Computed example of a mutant assay.
Amino acid sequence: MKLMAAAAIAGGLVAAPMIGAGTASAIPNVCDGAGCVPYVSTEAQLGEFCKQNTRYNYGFDGSGNTLACNSKSTWISSPPLVGVRTLRSACDSTGVAQSPDGVPLVCKDGAWSADYWTMFYG
């Protein structure tokens, strides 16, 4: 009986630091403004070559306009990039966003939704 109690206490002592360490990244990263969006190309040029991916596909031209890399590996015009948002969070924007893990998002029916149209059909 004492052995079981000692094992339970030891398990609790090991688990407690793990629980505390896990809370640091429990809240998804969101931000307002295009300047805080990670992995945005700052050397994009409308109509020029780009490396098309399914994630992190936005860029800015020299004037600060938002561009997106399409399925033909060409930079095309895009609505303004408004920041990082989480999938299915509430929205009322006419711009585009990027999820914390790089998925392109568009505001549709009041919620941020994955939007691969540009990447595959644009």
Score class of each variant (00 low, 15 high):
3 L>P: 01
5 A>N: 11
5 A>E: 10
6 A>W: 09
6 A>L: 15
7 A>P: 13
7 A>F: 15
8 A>T: 13
9 I>K: 11
10 A>I: 13
10 A>G: 14
11 G>S: 11
12 G>A: 04
14 V>C: 13
14 V>E: 12
16 A>H: 08
16 A>L: 15
18 M>W: 15
18 M>I: 15
18 M>E: 11
19 I>W: 08
19 I>L: 13
19 I>N: 03
20 G>T: 11
20 G>M: 10
21 A>H: 07
21 A>M: 07
23 T>V: 15
25 S>G: 08
26 A>N: 13
27 I>V: 15
27 I>N: 07
27 I>Y: 05
28 P>H: 06
28 P>L: 05
29 N>D: 14
31 C>V: 08
32 D>A: 12
32 D>E: 11
33 G>H: 03
33 G>F: 03
34 A>I: 05
35 G>W: 12
35 G>C: 03
35 G>N: 14
35 G>H: 11
36 C>F: 07
36 C>T: 07
37 V>N: 01
38 P>T: 04
38 P>K: 04
38 P>M: 04
39 Y>F: 15
40 V>M: 02
40 V>P: 09
41 S>Y: 05
41 S>I: 10
41 S>K: 11
41 S>E: 12
41 S>F: 10
42 T>F: 11
42 T>R: 12
42 T>N: 14
43 E>W: 11
43 E>S: 15
44 A>Q: 02
46 L>I: 11
48 E>I: 00
48 E>T: 06
50 C>V: 04
50 C>F: 06
51 K>C: 10
53 N>L: 12
53 N>P: 08
54 T>R: 13
55 R>T: 15
56 Y>W: 15
57 N>S: 12
60 F>A: 00
60 F>K: 01
61 D>L: 00
61 D>R: 00
62 G>Y: 03
64 G>Q: 09
64 G>I: 07
66 T>V: 06
67 L>N: 01
67 L>Y: 02
67 L>G: 01
68 A>I: 11
69 C>Y: 05
70 N>Q: 00
70 N>T: 02
71 S>P: 00
71 S>T: 07
72 K>R: 01
74 T>D: 04
74 T>Q: 13
75 W>S: 09
77 S>P: 11
77 S>Y: 12
77 S>H: 14
78 S>P: 14
78 S>H: 07
78 S>V: 10
81 L>R: 06
81 L>S: 04
81 L>V: 04
83 G>E: 05
84 V>R: 00
84 V>Q: 02
85 R>Q: 06
86 T>C: 05
86 T>K: 02
88 R>K: 05
91 C>M: 03
95 G>N: 03
97 A>I: 03
98 Q>A: 06
98 Q>C: 02
99 S>P: 09
100 P>M: 04
100 P>C: 03
102 G>P: 04
103 V>C: 10
103 V>D: 07
104 P>C: 00
104 P>Q: 00
104 P>H: 00
108 K>T: 12
109 D>G: 13
109 D>V: 05
110 G>H: 10
111 A>C: 01
111 A>S: 08
111 A>Q: 12
113 S>R: 09
113 S>F: 06
113 S>D: 07
115 D>N: 13
117 W>G: 09
117 W>N: 08
118 T>D: 11
118 T>P: 08
119 M>S: 06
120 F>T: 14
120 F>M: 14
120 F>S: 08
122 G>P: 09
